[in-house]
Nucleic acid binder design. Structure first.
Length: 573
RNA sequence: GGCGCGGUAGCUCAGUUGGUUAGAGCGAUCGACUCAUAAUCGAUAGGUCGGGAGUUCAAGUCUCCCCCACGCCA
């Protein structure tokens, strides 16, 4: 039994995530977690909210709440939506947890001991009215290049020129509008990633089986220009992990916090400590410490491409640079972006469909299936309401749902609601079982390789095999001439429903549960093969009672599609 | 401007280390069936694999140049 550690990129606390965020990390990670559990592997699947930084502070201020309260509330909101989407985290933690504070401070301390932390003095803009330092992009003013009056401190959106905040004419705070700004000297810590460059390069080069998307982004950052740059890991903010050197105070760093990108990935580890402290597990070290039992763990990370640099370079610098025996990631599965109807999904602009809205109009399985079977693996892909309707109706309603419906209703009408016992399997049945077994083996390989779209396509063709069989042996005709033979045909078809439920559960867990419930069984054993008395194809024995399930997937009508397309055409307010 | 990922049937995409008549799903057309969510099953049509040059007995698959789209960065 393999031991599988899975983490999904942690979503930022500020607001509800859209479908593009979902399909880029949490959803495929959940697919992989569910599959591995179904195969009997020991799985620890972790996710959390990423809570620190300026955007959270501003969002809290906007609704007039203390930032800690705001984050606590938003964490619960996100946890509830994740649960309703069927995301099967073993724990959904918080980067603002005490565990993460202590661990982040610990890493900073040991990195300093290893000579990988540099202290620098730099100039930062301070807003007296706001009582805080302003990140570059929160300073606005007139562009010295083109005269645009809403240029940001990092770049002018009008002429695209890169700027320094001190270049701006009549600079003001983007938060309050105040012009009472001053430049102050402030001290900061840098992670000396440049020192780790050769080691990271060798590590990345050894990962020949990673997606091209992952390695190409990592190599670009390693080799572009002057190579990997040191990175500031502290900020002049209040909301964050206080800067400490382990448990000791850090002279000169009073009142400062670690940068959100330093503490966020450390939460992957801290989350497992939260998992233990929540009494859900009893040993986090055997997942993370190679000196405490984690050497047989295989660790997979899932994320969108925008997160790749931090996971291939920054976080590994932290792990490797500590010179402590932490588990390093074995495989990084990265995704491109999902676009929405001709443009990008946008959290800040409220464009697209967000997770709560999606669940308001359809059950999670509809979304899970479409998003996963169209996951942006090789390139960006696009959500349109037409494609969504086509995919859901054809795959889920017509191919799978209708198969369950036609088999169970036919049996009920002709033989009653129990698995019929007559007849025996002949050559055609043997062939079907062999065909399905062969495809299951392919499906297993694709799932193990995290080939999400191909796995979905393979699963769909397994569903279709059932319809092909029924069409060919035509039990509705057979029953008139040879009822015993028809019973054998339907007995096999009913067993296919259980097999389909088990195979499909990672994609569509709710519908799979309905199928299992209808088949009146708790036998979730994975279909290993065709041979022997314990064959998956005879798991439901003759005489086993079942009920006809409710319609598994109602079709999306043209009227619904049009209404939703219109409702979600604008921006969310 | 640099870099990255793409450009394959109407649409969405597969096409390992170059090798027989380039594949799938959807859509279209025709047919079969009537158990079923007007579902299913079969068949057919449809592609000079972005353009050009080159290497090779052989290129969608390698090399070079160009064009287009998207993304990232400066």
């Amino acid at each position: 039994m393999a031991r599988i550690l899975i983490t999904s990129a942690i979503p930022y606390i500020n607001g509800i995530k859209h479908l593009g965020n979902l399909v880029g990390s949490q959803l495929p990670a959940d697919l992989f977690a569910r599959y591995n559990r179904a195969r009997g592997n020991e799985v620890l699947f972790l996710c959390a909210t990423d809570e620190h930084g300026t955007p959270a502070e501003l969002a809290a201020a906007k609704v007039g709440k203390p930032v800690a309260d705001y984050c606590a509330e938003m964490h619960d909101v996100q946890a509830d939506i994740a649960r309703r989407f069927g995301l099967s985290f073993d724990h959904f933690g918080r980067s603002s947890s005490d565990e993460n504070k202590a661990l982040t401070q610990h890493f900073a301390g040991v990195l300093a001991e290893q000579g990988l932390i540099a202290e620098t003095d730099e100039e930062q803009v301070y807003s007296n009215a706001d009582g805080r330092y302003l990140p570059d992009r929160y300073i606005e003013g007139t562009c010295p290049n083109c005269g645009y009056d809403k240029a940001r401190g990092d770049q002018c959106e009008n002429c695209t020129k890169q700027l320094d905040p001190i270049d701006l004419i009549e600079p003001r705070s983007a938060i309050s509008g105040s012009t009472d700004l001053e430049v102050r000297q402030t001290k900061h810590l840098y992670l000396r990633q440049s020192q780790m460059r050769a080691e990271l390069q060798a590590w990345i080069d050894s990962k020949t089986d990673w997606p091209v998307l992952t390695t190409s982004i990592a190599k670009k950052w390693l080799n572009d220009g002057d190579g990997l740059q040191d990175r500031g890991i502290t900020r002049d903010l209040e909301w964050g992990v206080p800067v400490k050197r382990g448990t000791e105070a850090w002279p000169g760093m009073e009142g400062k916090v670690f940068y959100v990108w330093f503490d966020a990935p450390i939460e992957y580890i801290a989350c497992s400590q939260e998992w233990v402290n929540a009494n859900k597990g009893d040993d986090w070290q055997r997942w993370w410490r190679t000196d405490a039992g984690a050497d047989d763990v295989t660790y997979y990370q899932f994320m969108g491409k925008d997160n790749v640099p931090f996971h291939t370079l920054s976080f590994p610098s932290t792990i490797l640079g500590s010179r402590e025996p932490w588990k390093l990631v074995d495989y990084i599965k990265s995704f491109n972006f999902l676009n929405y109807d001709g443009g990008q999904f946008s959290t800040s602009q409220g464009r697209g469909v967000f997770m709560d809205q999606a669940l308001d109009i359809l059950p999670a399985d509809y979304w899970r299936w479409w998003l996963l079977s169209n996951a942006p693996e090789t390139s960006d892909s696009e959500f349109t309401w037409e494609r969504f309707q086509d995919g859901v109706n054809k795959d889920l309603a017509d191919v799978l749902g209708n198969f369950v419906s036609r088999v169970t209703k036919f049996c009920r009408a002709k033989f009653g609601e129990e698995v019929p016992k007559g007849g025996s399997f002949g050559p055609r049945e043997t062939q079907l079982m062999a065909d399905i077994t062969g495809r299951i083996r392919t499906y297993e390989q694709l799932m193990a390789q995290m080939e999400v779209r191909k796995s979905a396509a393979e699963l769909r063709s397994i569903w279709a095999l059932g319809n092909e069989y029924l069409q060919e042996v035509a039990p509705w005709t057979t029953v008139k001439e040879d009822p015993e033979q028809a019973q054998a045909q339907i007995r096999l078809a009913l067993n296919l429903i259980r097999i389909y439920a088990v195979l499909s559960a990672p994609f569509i867990p709710t519908a799979a549960a309905s199928m299992m419930s209808g088949m009146n069984t708790l036998d979730f054993s994975w279909p290993e093969g065709v041979d022997g008395d314990d064959s998956a194809f005879t798991a439901l024995p003759a005489g086993h009672a079942f009920t006809v399930p409710e319609v598994l997937f109602a079709k999306i009508t043209d009227d619904q599609r049009k209404e939703w397309a219109e409702r979600f055409a604008g921006i969310r307010t």
